[in-house]
Simulated assay, not measured.
Amino acid sequence: MGLSVLFLRVEAITVPRAFIYGSCVGGDTANVFPSEWDRPTYVARQSIISAAFGPTEVVGDIELTSAFQRSMLEGDIEATAFPRLRQELPMHDALILDIVDERLGVYELAPGEYLTRSMELISSKLIGKQPVMPRLIDFGSDEHWGLWSRSVDSLVDVVKDSGIPVFAVLPPWSKKSIQGADLAWHSVSVESMNNKYARYNEYLVQCDFTIVTVPDDEALGDAEHKWGLAPFHYTDSVYESLRDQILAGVSS
Score class of each variant (00 low, 15 high):
198 A>S: 11
246 I>K: 08
161 D>Y: 01
88 E>A: 01
178 I>G: 15
28 D>H: 13
219 A>V: 01
248 A>I: 07
35 S>D: 14
28 D>E: 15
3 L>R: 12
78 E>D: 14
80 T>G: 01
65 T>L: 12
164 I>S: 06
202 E>A: 15
65 T>F: 07
200 Y>Q: 13
252 S>D: 14
7 F>T: 10
12 A>I: 08
28 D>F: 13
160 K>H: 10
75 G>P: 05
60 G>A: 06
9 R>I: 12
231 P>K: 06
192 S>D: 14
180 G>F: 10
131 P>L: 13
36 E>D: 15
76 D>I: 09
150 R>W: 02
7 F>I: 11
205 V>K: 02
109 L>T: 14
128 G>W: 00
84 R>L: 12
141 S>T: 15
170 L>Q: 04
242 L>R: 09
190 V>P: 02
74 E>S: 04
169 V>C: 00
211 I>S: 01
133 M>T: 14
67 A>Q: 12
164 I>T: 13
184 A>K: 12
133 M>A: 15
125 K>C: 06
13 I>H: 10
75 G>L: 06
53 F>D: 02
249 G>P: 08
221 G>V: 09
200 Y>D: 10
111 P>R: 03
69 Q>D: 07
203 Y>K: 06
120 E>P: 00
52 A>V: 03
245 Q>F: 01
22 G>V: 08
91 M>D: 13
29 T>V: 12
138 D>R: 15
12 A>E: 15
40 P>K: 05
97 L>V: 07
